[in-house]
């Protein structure tokens, strides 16, 4: 799904919300090569667990930056995006992002040719984001790795929703079904 950067264009900043945002970001990291900068606020008690991360992406590639405040998160993200030293920058944002902030980050991502992913709380993104995703785990009696990825904003394409499965052996995402093709489900907006 990320192989040809069809939905997650590099050189852009994207936003992810929902309970499975972290695994979405990790899968995106696994699809890229190079270093990952993972920026979060110091007061956040939730931290990535390397043994679990290893399913999606090599934890050794990730460098964590624990910023003091939400402003520092955005500042560090901009620096990291602009420098181009890391191939992907993930920032856990906890406050609403303004349009100015989003635009700056977008420009930084373009300048550094880096992929930026911002993990935001529901409804706190900025209009400057290239795409916005809502990701949540989905229950299935047979398969315990199902995720529902919903593309809820897209500047250069259509929206959509996919039920995907993470294949640990092949280390890639397998699209189980596109929402709307499944029997009995509501049609995804096109």
């Amino acid at each position: 799904m990320f192989e040809n950067n069809q939905h997650l264009r590099i050189k852009r900043a994207h936003e992810v919300c929902g309970p499975a945002a972290r695994s979405f970001a990790l899968i995106a990291c696994g699809a890229q090569k190079g270093a990952v900068i993972w920026i979060s606020e110091r007061k956040n008690p939730e931290q990535l667990f390397p043994a679990g991360v290893a399913r999606f992406c090599d934890p050794a590639r990730i460098i964590f930056a624990n910023a003091k405040s939400s402003i520092d998160v955005l500042w560090s993200a901009e620096e990291a995006l602009r420098s181009g030293a890391a191939s992907i920058v993930v920032a856990e944002v906890e406050k609403p992002m303004s349009l100015t902030a989003g635009r700056r980050l977008q420009l930084a991502a373009e300048a550094g040719k880096t992929l930026g992913l911002f993990l935001i709380p529901e409804g706190m993104g900025s209009n400057a984001a290239e795409t916005r995703w809502r990701c949540s785990p989905q229950f299935d009696a047979k398969d315990s790795t199902l995720l529902y990825w919903q593309l809820i904003k897209n500047k250069s394409g259509t929206l959509g929703g996919w039920v995907v499965r993470w294949d640990e052996q092949a280390r890639r995402v397998i699209v189980v079904s596109k929402v709307g093709e499944r029997a009995g489900s509501a049609r995804a907006p096109d």
Partner: peptide
């Protein structure tokens, strides 16, 4: 990059596992 970010948020805040 680590140096530049570290000089704002502290070099001890940039870690790896």
């Amino acid at each position: 990059l680590i140096t530049r970010i570290g000089n704002r948020i502290g070099l001890e805040s940039i870690t790896r596992c």
